[in-house]
């Protein structure tokens, strides 16, 4: 029963750890230090009225910039593992799925656009919109492989890197205009945030779709419409 005792030790240690963390949470002061007051005092200068967006794209824009870089690096990491064939059904997508996609896809794109726009004043923003676009992209991959294989080229690469490039460009541009890194000119903050978020939305949507493939799409797939399996090829 050696295995049993090993699991028992793990459980005892984890319960002790959970107890420690619970104690730490319980001992937090009721109204401890919070950045809430600073955020609400400066939100008028941020260019947006939704506090979470103001923190993400303005006050802590550096975090968000690096976050988009992390997404981009995940794609590079997955692509460096080798070529994969595009996933696709071994048979043409069913009538129901195709018909549903024709209804869902415009609605998803519209929802993404709304979330992007609403992020300035209400819950929403680039990541929520990008996630919806990513979902649309994955649906598209699962049904319309012909379309998906047409974008395996420079337009895809441009979209993949658009978020990182635009965000970095704005960050550096605001330096040349006299501010510090990511310190937007005050009157341009709103429009700059919208530009960054639009590029980030497109990038995130494409990145999530590409991550679903799980590797670098094979160029050979461009000439084929329907693949048999998602089997990997060696380089």
């Amino acid at each position: 029963m050696r295995l049993f005792s090993a699991k028992l030790i793990i459980i005892v240690l984890l319960v002790a750890l959970a107890g420690l963390i619970a104690w730490a949470i319980l001992s937090l002061p009721f109204n401890g230090p919070s950045l809430r007051a600073q955020v609400f005092a400066n939100i008028g200068h941020s260019g947006v009225s939704n506090p979470v967006t103001a923190v993400l794209l303005n006050f802590r824009g550096y975090d968000t910039l690096l976050e988009i870089v992390v997404l981009f690096l995940a794609v590079l990491g997955a692509w460096s593992l080798g070529m994969v064939q595009l996933p696709g059904p071994p048979y043409p997508a069913g009538l129901f799925l195709s018909a549903l996609l024709r209804i869902l896809l415009p609605a998803m794109v519209l929802t993404a656009g709304y979330l992007l726009w609403a992020g300035a004043h209400a819950p929403g923003g680039a990541f929520q919109a990008g996630a919806v676009l990513g979902g649309a992209g994955i649906l598209l991959l699962l049904t319309e492989v012909r379309f998906a294989s047409a974008i395996v080229s420079w337009p895809l690469r441009t979209l993949l890197s658009a978020g990182v490039l635009v965000f970095t460009g704005v960050a550096l541009g605001s330096m040349f205009l006299g501010g510090r890194l990511l310190e937007y000119p005050r009157h341009w903050a709103g429009i700059l945030i919208l530009v960054i978020e639009t590029a980030a939305t497109l990038s995130i949507g494409v990145i999530l779709t590409v991550l679903f493939i799980g590797g670098r799409p094979s160029e050979a797939d461009r000439t084929l419409s329907v693949k048999s399996t998602g089997k990997r090829k060696d380089k």
Partner: peptide, 22 residues
Amino acid sequence: PDPVPHAMGLTGLVVAVSATAL
């Protein structure tokens, strides 16, 4: 609520998704 931890959570979600995919 304090918006800063919310923003951190949003950042964390995206990083978690990309790390999971990789």
